[in-house]
Simulated scan of single mutants.
Amino acid sequence: MATALPPLNWFRAFEAAARHLSFTAAADEIGMTQSAVSQQIKALETKLGVPLFERKARGLALTDDGRRLLPQVDAALDTLVTATRSFIPDQPKKLLTVSVSVSVLQWVIGPTLPAFRVAHPDIALRFIGAIWPDEFSRSLADVIISFGSRKQAGPNAALLGSGKLIALAPSQMDTPWDTIPVIDTVGISGGWSKWRTATGISCADPSIYVDSYGAALDLSSNGNGLCLVNETLARHAVQSGSVVPVSPITIDANEAYFVETNPASQDAETFRKWLESTVGDGE
């Protein structure tokens, strides 16, 4: 049986950290958190059975094994870039790349994008979808619409829309709230108990679990149960009539959606202003 290779992301993290001699700089380049880069390199070291870096108080230094591995990883990554380049179609000269939460793409941008395209037909768009903070391609994007905490978003990102959660129910489900299935979003600060306290409304314990607010909203709009999602995502779904608010009361969330743009790109600024106008002023 062939030996299983480590994931490609581990090698990307190693190459970037080796080039910068910094986990933080590597994280900024490849769109991950510093802790994620550190964990991936630690996993690669464990897999290979050797240390690749010396962790020093003022930075990193490659070990002998790290110096031996680096040129081979460089060559392999260059080969992959060359091999894939011929498959990538020519891009238009004016292309705006948007790294975006898939939930925002589905529930905020998707329903309103035709209006942007009519107003700005000269701007071609490429969307790179992501869910968790480590997945956002910061080095590639002109606009970054990320999900996470204020700290994860960074000092240059602005809150997009609302930082509150609202409970929604399928519009066709006319039964008592406490008998309807409840959908919960895992990996995010729990809110159902706080919502029950704030509203005084009883509901069942969660029995369906998903990994994003967008997925929870999609399930709820298709009649699967109550969901508790970011208020900004809910607006189009409520307006279209696929879901209805269980209560007008909202609760604060520890995570929200944030937008950041490349200051050198006028098109990025145009897209940001349009997007913020579609979601209103948030809180």
Score class of each variant (00 low, 15 high):
Asp134Gly: 03
Thr261His: 06
Leu62Phe: 11
Asp205Val: 11
Ser247Val: 09
Arg58Ala: 06
Asp78Val: 02
Arg68Asn: 13
Ser137Met: 12
Leu8His: 09
Arg235Lys: 14
Leu168Ser: 02
Leu140Gln: 13
Ile180Gly: 04
Ala16His: 00
Thr3Ser: 12
Leu125Cys: 12
Val259Phe: 14
Val100Ile: 15
Thr199Asn: 11
Ala204Val: 07
Ala167Tyr: 01
Pro89Ile: 15
Gln152Trp: 11
Phe23Asp: 00
Gly214Asp: 05
Ile131Asn: 14
Ala4Lys: 04
Ala17Glu: 00
Leu70Asn: 08
Ile201Trp: 04
Gly223Phe: 01
Ala16Met: 00
Leu77Gln: 03
Ile109Glu: 02
Thr82Trp: 05
Val243Gln: 02
Pro111Lys: 05
Gln91Pro: 11
Ser207Ala: 10
Val104Arg: 08
Ile41Asp: 01
Ser22Lys: 02
Tyr257Met: 14
Ala198Tyr: 06
Phe136Met: 09
Gln34Leu: 05
Glu135Leu: 04
Arg55Tyr: 15
Pro121Tyr: 10
Ser139Ala: 15
Thr46Asp: 11
Gly282Asp: 07
Ser202Arg: 15
Trp107Glu: 13
Thr232Glu: 05
Thr63Pro: 08
Gly191Phe: 01
Cys227Arg: 01
Glu276Phe: 08
Thr63Ile: 10
Val182Met: 04
Gly241His: 03
Thr197Pro: 04
Glu283Thr: 08
Lys94Arg: 15
Asp211Cys: 11
Leu80Ile: 08
Asp205Phe: 11
Phe127Glu: 09
Glu15Arg: 02
Glu54Phe: 14
Gly187Leu: 13
Val229Asp: 00
His20Thr: 04
Thr84Arg: 01
Thr185Tyr: 01
Ile180Met: 12
Ala141Glu: 12
Ala26His: 00
Asp122Thr: 10
